[in-house]
Amino acid sequence: MADWSADFLGAGFEQRELSARSMPAGTLVRFVPTPQESADSSDERGPADSNIALLYVHGWSDYYFNTELADFVSARGWRFYALDLPEHGRSLRPGGRPGYIPSAEHYLESIDAALDALAADGTGQIVLMGHSTGGLAAALEAQRRPDRIAALILSSPWLVPHGGRAAGRMLEYALAGRATARPDQVIPLPSRGYFWRAVAREAGGEWDLREDLRPRTAFPVRAGWLYGILAAQRELLAGSTVSIPSLLLASTRSDTGLVWREHMRSRDAVLAIGPMRRAARAVCSSLDEVLVDGGLHDVLLSAPSVRRGAYTRLGAWLDRVVDASG
């Protein structure tokens, strides 16, 4: 495994490449506050050398960049890590297929490699947090290997196909042949950059996004990738329930229409909230909800007042479910 090196996010952030079965498994990022930053923290709930950690997994066509999340976790005295999945963000390589992960098994291999690296780093309890497609992967990980995770945070997770489970099964069946014979085939879908438009500074948001790591619309949707996602959603919803403490973090409202509306700056413009909530309840037997009015698809990228409230409620939940003395 490669050594840690400086990350482009700046002071305190480091990265290293991961491998699984001799194959690239993504890039792990960690935040190591300087001694002065640790001393300046007003949060005294945990020691700076706590063995509790939060591991964040981003969504499709995305990468980790939210330094506020690292600050929030570090202020608790916990360790913070984030995983850039293969063919995403820091893990993009020349000649690769951006965004293409052929099956849920490859997602889980990447998460397992990250969990192994955290264990080697001296981490004990791990809170796994997944956003959107990363939430689907995190839920599968918790379903299969609950012994490795203390708690699960599903941030606007993509747990159920657009149009519902029946539509997902029909599309999965239709894609089966192409996913085997031509997995790289690009499926023509409407280009929608609504989430980027709500988040990026140059479009009226407040976040600086690297377009070489995250496109304005999305990476090409390939038959093999979409087939793998649909199969993973079907497996998750048909499998055993996740019994570890789990949280659904999402907006209260959504608008997934094909025409941009300014109110999409305060709603989930990617996934419908109703099906998401029903699927999360079906998957997790010990589920709490933090539904945030004015939240975006990624609630923690919403307007400052919105995400401050979200962090407060998230922190209260973590206090209740994670044993800081464990």
Rank of each mutant, 00 (worst) to 15 (best):
Ala11Val: 11
Arg281Met: 07
Trp78Val: 14
Ser132Gly: 02
Arg144Ser: 11
Ala139Trp: 06
Val270His: 00
Gly134Gln: 06
Ile153Ser: 06
Ala39Glu: 10
Val242Thr: 13
Ser254Leu: 14
Leu9Lys: 01
Gly99Leu: 03
Tyr56Gln: 12
Arg307Gln: 10
Trp158Pro: 05
Met276Ser: 04
Leu287Ala: 06
Arg210Thr: 12
Asp268Pro: 06
Arg45Ser: 15
Ala70Pro: 02
Gly309Tyr: 06
Ile149Ser: 07
Ala223Cys: 06
Asp255Ser: 03
Ser246Tyr: 09
Arg145Ser: 14
Glu141Asp: 10
Asp319Leu: 12
Leu236Arg: 04
Arg222Thr: 13
Met264His: 00
Pro215Leu: 06
Leu108Trp: 01
Ser240Thr: 15
Phe8Gly: 07
Glu109Leu: 12
Val199Ala: 11
Glu37Thr: 12
Phe65Ala: 11
Ser91Asp: 15
Phe13Asn: 00
Leu83Val: 12
Arg76Met: 07
Gly326Arg: 14
Pro161Ala: 13
Tyr81Val: 13
Met276His: 01
Ala269Ile: 02
Gly295Asp: 10
Ser110Glu: 08
Arg30Ile: 09
Phe13Thr: 01
Ala139Gln: 09
Ala250Lys: 02
Ser155Ala: 14
Phe65Asn: 04
Gly326Asn: 13
Asn66Ala: 02
Leu85Ala: 12
Gly77Cys: 04
Ala176Lys: 10
Ala179Val: 05
Asp49Leu: 08
Asp121Leu: 10
Leu314Asp: 08
Gly46Trp: 00
Gly99Asp: 03
Trp4Asn: 08
Trp78Lys: 09
Leu209Glu: 05
Ala324Gln: 10
Ser243Asp: 15
Pro102Cys: 09
Glu87His: 14
Trp4Met: 11
Asp62Val: 04
Asp49Pro: 03
Val29Phe: 00
Leu237Tyr: 05
Arg178Val: 12
Gly134Ala: 08
Ser191Arg: 00
Pro35Lys: 03
Met170Ala: 15
Leu230Lys: 01
Leu159Cys: 11
Ser132Gln: 00
Arg267Tyr: 10
His131Met: 07
Glu141Tyr: 06
Asp121Trp: 07
Arg169Ala: 15
Leu230Arg: 03
Ala48Arg: 12
Leu85Thr: 14
Ala82Cys: 05
Asp7Glu: 03
Ala174Lys: 04
Arg21Met: 09
Ile153Tyr: 04
Gly177Tyr: 04
Glu14Gly: 00
Val73His: 01
Leu69Cys: 07
Ser132Ile: 03
Ala310Asn: 07
Pro161Arg: 08
Val160Gly: 01
Glu105Ile: 07
Ala11Trp: 00
Gly96Pro: 11
Arg308Met: 13
Glu235Ser: 14
Thr252Asp: 14
Arg281Phe: 03
Trp317Asn: 12
Ala25Ile: 11
Asp268Gly: 10
Arg30Trp: 05
Leu296Phe: 07
Asn66Gly: 01
Glu262His: 05
Ser22Leu: 13
Cys284Ala: 08
Tyr227Gln: 09
Val322Ala: 13
Ala70Cys: 07
Pro102Leu: 10
Asp49Lys: 05
Arg178Ala: 14
Thr241Ile: 14
Ser38Gly: 14
Tyr194Asn: 00
Gly77His: 02
Tyr107Phe: 13
Val242Ser: 08
Pro188Lys: 05
Phe31Thr: 05
Leu85His: 08
Tyr311Ala: 10
Pro102Ser: 13
Met1Val: 15
Val306Leu: 06
Ser305Asn: 13
